[in-house]
Design a protein around this nucleic acid. Structure first.
Length: 508
RNA sequence: GGCGCCAUGGUGUAAUUGGUUAACACGCCGCCCUCUCAAGGCGGAGAGUUCGGGUUCGAUCCCCGAUGGCGCUACCA
């Protein structure tokens, strides 16, 4: 016999196995961890059934901030026990999103699909102590009973009939090859409660909790079992997760008690809603974190914005919204988490983004911009120093990183498009075009080329021609940049240099 | 339906935890600046704190109820 262990590798779980059990391999403890019992251990545990979405990202961020604040450990765990819907590609997408926001983890990623022994052992323990039992009801039977119950106006909870199956009968039926799941035996009396760090005391009547499935008939654990087994095994001290898990929590509390494990601190964070106040989903537009990268959002801006969604650093900092990563880490606390759901406001995110872009020195912006340039298949035709100076010149007008590859293209390359609307607004008049060509000749003939000289030349030229300087300025702006919007014209001229200015004025 | 949670301008939040003309930011509107657009400066509209009852000398804050929203209600996570 294999020491009384159930083996997952053999067909038709559960079945004893002598081949696959080894005390070492099945002991899924994290022996690489040092004992950090005094510092918090938290985790982000996404299910790889989709990309990292903003709600998950914020949950991850809060966990990360909490861990960093206390010098604790941030663990990444992939909850991939739903083989149907999980995929490796999605895992990669999630990791990519985490990296983009700058959330580094200390342990993991751990995959639940590789820790099945732990869950089976835990289930076994629960059965041995009488806290769980085998259930031979089939899915079809359950569905039918549920439908009947609903039709009859009764709560569609499992009727606990397999709780009455004797241990001998259960063993016999299993031996005969009958498939069975493992259910937790929820006490029928009393209540189960926990003290949530955000919501306070939350209490549920046990009569409202059904005998939930721990292990499916194929031997794969359900979420209810795997979270608890892992959270205990990984010695998590705080569980910071979405408020959609509040109703699941009593099921977990019951297991902690049955297993004799200490309860972690639960902190449920409110959900993120769309503008219509329903749970944020694809209907509201981008929900994938990486979509925001693609929109030209700076990661720090995104992180800052997310941090303030459902959390506040408190009254001492109510006059500020811009916080560096270090400040967020220093200021973060569970007490600041709000209880009510928050609406994701794109306008506010856009504001954060412009603030960050504006505040970044060109050197810091450059790599981010280069990424956009690469995507656009574009290479700037200017020297590095010129490029940096140009970034500083135009960045106050940037809405996002993509602007540097589109609207601001004329500053970095001689091949750029003229915005038709800009032409229509300031360059539709042929006489203005003619004057600009003439103006270009004046510049060509002038040895000096500074903000002062270029302005003086233009203004006196305008006066000479009896035309308002503004008309030429606006026209020249379009001719030089292709846009109706730009920094001060003469600063642009000096930035581009005499040669380009003359050429662009004369070829418009 | 049952159970749970939540509720301050359009949005995110604050209000020394019962005593303020209910504050800040985003957004919006206007003015100034001006070569455009941002930025910036100045000013403005917008909540009497979901509603109704209590408790109290006094409620955004405490209690009860209602309403609304959200969540859970799977051999998903």
């Amino acid at each position: 016999m294999c020491g009384g262990r159930w083996c997952a590798m053999s067909l038709g779980w559960p079945r004893f196995c002598t081949r696959h059990f080894s005390p070492v391999a099945s002991k899924v403890t994290l022996n690489t961890m040092s004992d950090t019992s005094l510092t918090p251990r938290v985790r982000f545990a996404p299910s790889p059934t989709g990309y990292l979405h903003v709600g998950g990202a914020r949950t991850a961020l809060f966990n990360w901030l909490f861990a960093r604040h206390f010098g604790g450990t941030f663990i990444l765990r992939i909850e991939d026990t739903d083989f149907e819907r999980s995929s490796e590609e999605m895992v990669e997408g999630i990791l990519e999103g985490m990296r983009w926001i700058g959330l580094n983890w200390d342990e993991g990623p751990f995959y639940q699909s590789k820790r099945l022994d732990l869950y089976r052992q835990t289930a076994e323990k629960l059965i041995a102590s009488g806290h769980a039992y085998y259930c031979f009801c089939t899915k079809a039977e359950l569905e039918q009973r549920r439908a009947e119950a609903t039709a009859a106006g009764r709560p569609p909870m499992y009727d606990r009939r397999c709780r009455r199956v004797t241990q001998q009968d259960a063993a016999a039926r299993k031996a005969a090859g009958e498939a069975c799941a493992v259910r937790f035996a929820v006490p029928e009396e009393s209540t189960t409660s926990f003290d949530d760090a955000v919501f306070g005391k939350v209490e549920f009547a046990n009569s409202e909790i059904e005998d939930f499935v721990l292990l499916r008939s194929d031997g794969i654990p359900t979420y209810h079992l795997s979270v608890v087994a892992d959270d205990i095994d990984m010695r998590l001290t705080h569980i910071i997760r979405g408020a959609d898990h509040i109703s699941n929590t009593p099921k977990q509390v019951l297991q902690y008690r049955a297993l004799g494990a200490a309860l972690p601190v639960f902190a449920h964070v409110p959900l993120i809603l769309g503008p219509d106040k329903t749970r944020l989903s694809k209907r509201h537009g981008a929900t994938s974190v990486m979509a925001y990268k693609d929109m030209g959002i700076v990661p720090e801006a995104f992180r800052n914005f997310l941090a303030l969604l459902g959390w506040t650093p408190g009254p001492a900092h109510k006059d500020r919204e811009l916080f560096s990563s270090e400040e967020l880490v220093q200021l973060f606390s569970l007490e600041g988490i709000s209880k009510s759901n928050a609406v994701f406001d794109n306008d506010k995110l856009a504001w954060f983004n412009t603030e960050y872009i504006r505040s970044y020195p060109a050197e810091k912006l450059l790599p981010l911009i280069e990424e956009e340039w690469n995507k656009a298949g574009f290479t700037p035709e200017r020297q590095r120093e010129e490029t940096l100076a140009t970034i500083d010149l135009v960045k106050p007008r940037a809405r996002n990183l993509k602007d540097f590859a589109s609207a601001f293209r004329a500053y970095f390359s001689d091949t750029f498009e003229y915005d038709p609307a800009a032409i229509a607004k300031f360059l539709k008049d042929e006489t203005v075009r003619a004057l600009l060509i003439e103006l270009g000749a004046r510049y060509a003939a002038s040895p000096e080329f500074t903000e002062g000289s270029t302005e003086q030349i233009l203004r006196s030229f305008a006066e000479e021609k009896g035309i308002k300087a503004g008309v030429l300025i606006n026209g020249a702006r379009v001719a030089l940049t292709g846009q109706a919007v730009a920094p001060s014209l003469f600063a642009v001229m000096v930035n581009l240099g005499k040669e380009r200015v003359v050429k662009r004025l004369s070829t418009i």
